[in-house]
Amino acid sequence: MAKAARACEEAKEKQKAKSVEPGKKDLVLHPTNLWLTIHESVGHPTELDRALGFEANFAGTSFVTPDKLGKLRYGSELVNIVGDRTQKGGLSTIGYDDDGVKTKGAEFHILRDGRFENYQMSVGLAQKIGRKRSNGCAFADSWDNFPLQRMPNISLQPGKKKVSIEELFSDIKDGIYIMGDSSFSIDQQRYNFQFTGQVFWEIKNGKLGQMLRDVAYQGNTVDFWNSCDALCGKEEYHLGGAMNCGKGQPQQIAPVSHGAVPARFRKVNILNTERSDI
């Protein structure tokens, strides 16, 4: 009820919010927004079936080609993103995947200290990149569909120190704090994305200011994750997710969770969605 009351207050405040001034700004993304950015810009590009071309006709391929395995500097050194099907409360959590692979012990880093380390794999795909076993990512949404490689729970790990969200704001001269997800779009190889949110606040000289509206952030996946320069600690961890991730032909729907802590990104391209020259 407290959350509902807060949402009502925010909806009223949004009526009076100031339209954003576009340009490069620092961003603090709450996990209620960041989960979807993780899903689109890390989850989908690191699906091995996509990278190999099996999804080319529908969802597309990926800029994360197998030659980048272990080499690509995907994000800053703070960025650790883990895939697992064992996280408590995770929508993708299960004991055995649809290939029959045991998921406990199959947890894996997709990005370790910012470097691309692992694809998501099912049994039939792992050997195509010389791996002896999959990491338990096979899933079929129904008895009459083939198991595909689908996302495990994919989560941004908290920073090592206890850092509050106010501390993330404190080092920002001109920025925006975004909560909640809304419109989301990314290209078929997962370079260029554009996301919005539910509520936006101005950050001025280290402090949270007035509410803003008409905000979208647009960027390139690798530039964006390399601009991450601060994370909150585990105390701020929040698990988000979706019940309706689509993939494959015939299309299959899968549930998946994405955990994150609030994170700060520097000099991201901010658009004003009300302007005709956006």
């Binding site: 597309g60 419109s183 989301f184 290209d187 078929q188 969605t273």
Partner: peptide, 19 residues
């Protein structure tokens, strides 16, 4: 086009990509 989403229902602004 690809991955078209409505950005603002009041102006019916859409975003997406050529493909």
């Amino acid at each position: 086009f690809w991955y078209i989403r409505e950005v603002d229902p009041r102006t019916m602004l859409f975003t997406g990509l050529t493909r």
